[in-house]
């Protein structure tokens, strides 16, 4: 299982199919929540995920495609773009420096 420590996360990518809707909304929230943690939050289409991504958040329906693009990066898959518990756990891991797994 791929894991990463929250304190090692410098670039967080939120990915969705087109990179213009849901990922934009979630990235906006995360940018706000992680402003003080030195994390760069970007949104991208799955096909355009930047190589420097330390962790990728995506809808569970897209997780397999994301894995194909970034096989060695921790992927957090979510069902809700607003208020998903997996996102809350990720934010907490970054803020407290605990491990994030898949």
């Amino acid at each position: 299982m791929t894991t990463i420590n929250g304190s090692a996360i410098k670039t967080l990518v939120v990915a969705c199919d087109a990179g213009m809707g849901s990922s934009v909304m979630l990235a906006g929230q995360l940018r706000r929540q992680l402003k003080k943690n030195g994390v760069t939050v970007v949104h991208a289409a799955v096909a355009e995920i930047p190589v420097e991504a330390d962790v990728i958040v995506t809808h569970q329906g897209l997780a397999d495609r994301v894995r194909g693009v970034a096989p060695d990066t921790v992927i957090v898959s979510i069902q809700l773009f607003i208020g998903d518990p997996a996102v809350a756990r990720l934010v907490s891991a970054i803020q407290t420096g605990s491990d994030v797994g898949e």
Partner: peptide
């Protein structure tokens, strides 16, 4: 393929990557 429902009675319909 994937619903754009985001909660609280709101959806954000949009196109696909290729339709840009």
């Amino acid at each position: 393929s994937v619903s754009t429902y985001v909660g609280e009675g709101v959806a954000i319909p949009h196109g696909t990557l290729t339709s840009k």
